[in-house]
């Protein structure tokens, strides 16, 4: 389970948190807790969903303050630092970060789980404890915002 999901979950939550260390902490704690009570969790229908849920909760716990979130998102633009020879790509990334900043945290989570973890809408709904309709609404909103940023031709 670790090798199958750790990396993608960290990547997804990094996009949400804007801070890879925070995302790693959350995911590592989730896996650690799963390990400690694996005898029970292994009997769950979807243990991965449990881990994902714990990681998301941890992330929420450390990302309550709006200002703090804003600062963290700003840092996202420097995640791939040192890419001076990739100025265009970095510039695009900064734009995307700015676009993501327009979304709520739950909207970003929906985006990350759907586009980075490649979860189905139903799985995103379970992970975020919301209806599929709400997830679709979040994704629609995100597409509207991101489309303008990345200038996708219709």
């Amino acid at each position: 389970m670790f090798h199958g999901y750790y990396g993608s979950l960290v990547r997804s939550l990094t996009v949400v948190a804007g801070d890879q260390q925070t995302a790693e902490d959350a995911v590592q704690e989730a896996f650690a807790q799963a390990h400690l009570r694996w005898s029970k969790i292994s009997k769950y229908e979807d243990p991965v969903a449990w881990v994902r849920r714990v990681a998301i909760n941890r992330l929420f716990n450390v990302h309550r303050g709006r200002r703090r979130r804003s600062r963290a998102l700003s840092r996202l633009g420097t995640l791939r630092g040192g890419a001076t020879d990739e100025a265009t790509r970095v510039s695009d990334q900064v734009d995307v970060v700015a676009a993501l900043r327009q979304l709520t945290q739950r909207q970003r989570l929906a985006v990350a789980l759907y586009y980075i973890e490649d979860l189905a809408v139903g799985e995103v709904a379970v992970a975020l404890e919301m209806s599929e309709g709400t997830v679709k609404s979040h994704l629609h909103r995100a597409r509207e915002v991101l489309r303008k940023t990345i200038e996708v031709p219709e």
């Binding site: 960290v10 990547r11 790693e24 650690a32 400690l36 791939r80 695009d92 586009y115 980075i116 597409r143």
Partner: peptide, 26 residues
């Protein structure tokens, strides 16, 4: 396109280091 851009944005992850840290937490 969105998927491509977001994947590009997400960082690389050192799974081995992550596993070590999890063990340290446990």
């Amino acid at each position: 396109r969105i998927r491509h851009v977001l994947h590009d944005l997400a960082p690389s992850v050192d799974e081995q280091e992550g596993w070590k840290r999890i063990q340290a937490r446990i």
